[in-house]
Computed example of a mutant assay.
Amino acid sequence: MRNTRTLTRRATLTATALTAALILTACGNGSDSASSGDGSSSASADATAGAHNAQDVSFAQGMIPHHQQALEMAKLATDRASSAEVKDLAARIEKAQDPEIQTMNGWLKSWGVDMSSSMSGMDDSAHSDMPGMMDSTHMDMLKKASGTDFDTMFLTMMIEHHKGAVNMATTEKNKGKYGSATAMADDIITAQTGEITEMNKLLGKN
Score class of each variant (00 low, 15 high):
M158H: 05
S44P: 02
G39Y: 06
A21W: 02
A21T: 13
R92L: 13
P99W: 04
F150E: 00
G147F: 00
T190G: 03
K173M: 11
L24C: 08
G37Q: 14
A90T: 05
I159R: 03
Q102K: 15
T103M: 09
G194W: 03
T78R: 13
I188M: 04
A91I: 15
G176W: 01
S125R: 10
A185K: 01
A45D: 15
M139R: 01
D129H: 14
H52D: 00
A183P: 03
A165P: 00
S128F: 08
H161Y: 13
L89N: 08
P65K: 04
R9A: 12
N206F: 06
K177F: 00
S42E: 14
Q102L: 14
L76C: 10
M158Q: 12
N53G: 03
V86H: 01
L142Q: 02
N167M: 09
K177A: 07
I188W: 00
Q68H: 05
T14K: 14
D149G: 05
S35V: 14
A74R: 03
S180K: 10
D135E: 10
D46T: 14
T48Q: 12
G179F: 03
M73F: 08
D56P: 00
G112I: 05
A91D: 15
A91G: 15
K201F: 07
A84F: 07
S41I: 15
A17W: 05
K201G: 06
N174T: 13
L142T: 06
A185S: 12
M104Q: 06
N105A: 07
M157A: 08
A51K: 00
Q102N: 15
M73K: 09
M115W: 02
T170F: 01
E172A: 07
K144E: 10
E160H: 13
L7F: 12
S82H: 11
S41W: 15
T171C: 01
A90L: 09
K95R: 12
P65C: 04
R10M: 06
N200F: 07
V86G: 00
T190V: 05
D32I: 13
D98L: 09
L142K: 02
T170W: 00
D186T: 12
T170A: 11
N3A: 09
E160S: 14
S36N: 07
S42D: 12
A191M: 12
S42Q: 12
S35W: 14
L108I: 08
G147P: 00
S40L: 08
E85I: 13
T4I: 02
A185G: 14
S146Y: 01
E195L: 04
C27T: 14
T25N: 13
R10F: 09
N200R: 13
A60Y: 01
